[in-house]
Design a binder for these strands. Structure first.
Lengths: 352, 352
DNA sequence: TAGGCGCATAATAGCGCTACGATAAGTTTT
DNA sequence: AAAACTTATCGTAGCGCTATTATGCGCCTA
C-alpha cells in the first residue's frame, strides 16, 4: 500500500525537546542572527550599541541562560577548572579552594571539586574524569602522583598547576613552598629556645607525603645544627585531629624522657598536645615548648597562644588563580615563572 | 577569471583540530559502529560479550577518555551536581560537601562547587551559572533565597535539594533539621542544669539565618519554660571564630550580671568562650555552663570537654545524595518523602 | 564615480556524543 | 514455511553553541 512513501517520506525524528530558551529564540526576538547574539555575549564591544541593546532586552525578557555545555563543546574547552585535593575537610585546603573559587568565579570559571583521600589511585581516577570535561585547567595537590596520572595530564595538553608543594619538577606549573624547609624552621626555632630533646608529632605520614617531608626536614636540621640534641619523629596512623595530638604527646613523653620541645605537623595536633599538657599539668612553654603548623582559627587565641608556621593557603589560592588566568588570557606565559614559592612565616607566640 | 570556480569550489573549513581520541576512533579499531561503543560504555550488558571485549581493548589501547561535555549536550543533562554553600571554610559544610562528593562520585557524578558568602545576590548569580551546566541536580544551603532564585530553579525543572534546614516549604526537596528546635534543646539543657541567667552567643546572625533561628528558638524556650529566667542574645557581626567567642563572652559578662549559662551558635565560639573563662579564672561548668553547636574536631578533647549539639553534617550529605540519586534512577520518587529530618543530638560532656 | 578598505552582521559547518528509529540476523509461533 | 517476535548492531539527526568565512554596506580616496 502506498508504495514509494515508506522509504521517501520518513518521519522526522523527534528528540526530547529541551523546553529551554535557546540563543536562537533570543536572536529571533532581537531581530538579529544567532551569530550576533553569540558575539555580543562574548564580546559586547564588537556589536553595534543598537543591536546590543536589543539583544540585552531580549535576553532579559526571555530569561535566557546560556548553555555552557554546548558552548564548551563548540569551543573545545569548557569554562571549568578541576581541583583535586586530598580532603576538603582539611582547613588548609578549604582555605585555598575557597580563595581559588572566588578568584576564578570572578572570571566566569567554574570549579569542579574532587578529593583523593590521599590515594594516588583515587587521584588518577579523578584526573581521568576531570579531563573528560576538557577543563581550562587542572589543579592538583602536591608533587607526588602516579606515573599514569602524569602521562594523562601531559598528553591532554591542559594546563596543570600543582599546589601546596615545590621542590621537585612539576608536571607544568607549581605554587607552594618547601616542606623540608618548614620542618627545618621549626627545628631551628626550638633549638634557638635552648631545647635539646625534641620531637616531631605527625599524623598519617605514610600517606601524607608533605607532612612526612616536614618531619624529615625537622629531623635533618636537628641533627646538623646541634650534635647534642636528640630528636624523634612520632607518627599517628589516623587523621590529624586534636585527639591524635593528645595521644601523640603521651607517646612522646614515653619515648623521649626529657622532652622539652615538640613540633606538630598541624595546629590541630598542637592543640591536642596543649590540652594534654594542661591535663598533666605540664607547663608550656616552661617545660615543653610547642610549635605548630597552619595558623588555624584558634591558634592565636588558645592558651597559651600557639607559635606556628603559616603556610598562607589563601596566597596559594591567589597565585594558582593568577597562573591559570594568565595562561588562558595570553598564549605565551613562557616569560613568567611557572614555579612560585609562596614561602612560610614563623609566627612566634606564647607556646615557645 | 576562472568563473564558476570561486563559488563552487570552496575550501572546506578548517576547524581547530582536536587531537583527542574520539569515540569514532575506538569504533574503528574495534570494528564496530560508534553507536555500539556508546551503548557499551553506558550499558555494557546490552552489547555482546565478544564486541564488548573488543571495545574494551580498543579503549585501553587508544587511552580513550570520553568527552562528557559532548555527552552532556547530546543527552540534554550533564553528569554534574552543583552545590552552593555559604562557605567551604566552615567545617559544617566542608563535612557535608565531602560526604556528598564521595557518594556522588561513586555514581559517576561530578560536583561543581560555589560559595555564596551568605549573600542572596551572590547565590542567585551562582544558581544562574549552575543552571548553565544543565546539571543533574542543584543543592542549596538553607531555605532562604531570593525570589528570582526560586523562580529560576522552578522554571528549570532541575531537581533541587535544600539542605541544613527544614521548617518552611522547600522549592523541591529538603534535608536537614529545625534550627529553632536546636536552640530550644540548648535552652532546655541549661535550664535543666539549674541555670537561670543565660545567654546565646552567635556570630554573623544578620546574614546567617540559621544561626538566627537557633537564637530565637533558644530565647523562646527560655521565656516559656522558666519565668524566672533571664535570657540575652548577643551577636558578633563578624565570622564565627574562636576569637569572636572570647569577645562575645566578655560582652555577655558585662550585659548579664549573674551569667551562669551560655549557648553558642558554633563550637568555635564555644571554644573561644572556654578560653576566655580560663583566662578570667571562671570555673566551667561550676560558675558558667557552656553548650556549643557542631561537635567539631576539638569538642570532645578540649578542657573541659564541650557539651554540644551535633547536627550530623555527613548524614545530611548522605541523605542529599540518596535523594538526588533516587530522583535520577527512577522517574517517580513521589512515593518517598521529599523532606528529610536528620534531627540533632545533644551530647553532654563536662562543660555543663 | 569606480575601486578599495573597514566594519557590522549573517551564513554555515561542525564540536563528540547520545537517542531514536531502522535494519539484519536469529527464534519462536501459527 | 510464512508471520511475528527477539536481540544485537547500525545509521543518522540533532543537542546549542562557537569559529570561521562570506556578505553587505557605508565611506574614503583618486
Amino acid at each position: 500500500m502506498d508504495a514509494g512513501n515508506s522509504s521517501q517520506n520518513r518521519v522526522p525524528r523527534k528528540r526530547r525537546k529541551m523546553q529551554r530558551v535557546t540563543m536562537m529564540d533570543v536572536a529571533k526576538l532581537a531581530q538579529v542572527s544567532p551569530s550576533t547574539v553569540s558575539l555580543y555575549l562574548r564580546k559586547p564591544a564588537a556589536v553595534s550599541p543598537a543591536a546590543g541593546q536589543e539583544i540585552a532586552r531580549a535576553v532579559s525578557t526571555l530569561g535566557y541562560v546560556p548553555n555552557l555545555v554546548a558552548g564548551g563543546l563548540a569551543a573545545a574547552s569548557s569554562k571549568v577548572v578541576s581541583i583535586i585535593v586530598p580532603s576538603i575537610r582539611n582547613a588548609f585546603f578549604a582555605e585555598t579552594v575557597s580563595t581559588l573559587q572566588s578568584e576564578l568565579a570572578a572570571e566566569g570559571l567554574q570549579v569542579i571539586l574532587g578529593h583523593s583521600e590521599y590515594g594516588e589511585d583515587q587521584e588518577e581516577a579523578l584526573v581521568r574524569t576531570a579531563l573528560s570535561w576538557a577543563p581550562a585547567a587542572v589543579v592538583l595537590t602536591g608533587l607526588s602522583h602516579s606515573a599514569e596520572t602524569c602521562k594523562l595530564l601531559r598528553a591532554s595538553g591542559v594546563p596543570v598547576v600543582e599546589m601546596w608543594e615545590i621542590g621537585a619538577k612539576p608536571i607544568d606549573m607549581a605554587v607552594g613552598f618547601s616542606h623540608p624547609q618548614v620542618g627545618a624552621s621549626a627545628a631551628r626555632h626550638l633549638l634557638s629556645k635552648g631545647r635539646r630533646s625534641i620531637a616531631f608529632l605527625g599524623a598519617r605520614m605514610q600517606e601524607d607525603h608533605r607532612a612526612a617531608k616536614r618531619a624529615s626536614g625537622f629531623a635533618d636540621e636537628a641533627k646538623h645544627a646541634a650534635e647534642t640534641a636528640t630528636c624523634e619523629v612520632i607518627n599517628h596512623p589516623g587523621a590529624a585531629t586534636v585527639e591524635a595530638g593528645s595521644l601523640l604527646l603521651s607517646r612522646a613523653l614515653q619515648q623521649v624522657p626529657d622532652l622539652d620541645g615538640i613540633a606538630c605537623s598541624n595546629d590541630l595536633i598542637a592543640l591536642g598536645a596543649l590540652f594534654e599538657c594542661q591535663r598533666r599539668e605540664i607547663a608550656v612553654p616552661d617545660r615543653i615548648a610547642v610549635i605548630g603548623f597552619g595558623d588555624l582559627d584558634f591558634s592565636a587565641s588558645c592558651i597559651p597562644s600557639l607559635t606556628t608556621i603559616r603556610p598562607s593557603g589563601d596566597l596559594i589560592g591567589k597565585e594558582v588563580a593568577r597562573l591559570i588566568l594568565g595562561g588562558i588570557h595570553s598564549e605565551h606565559p613562557e616569560g613568567a615563572s611557572r614555579i612560585i614559592d609562596t614561602g612560610h612565616v614563623l609566627i612566634e607566640r606564647r607556646s615557645t
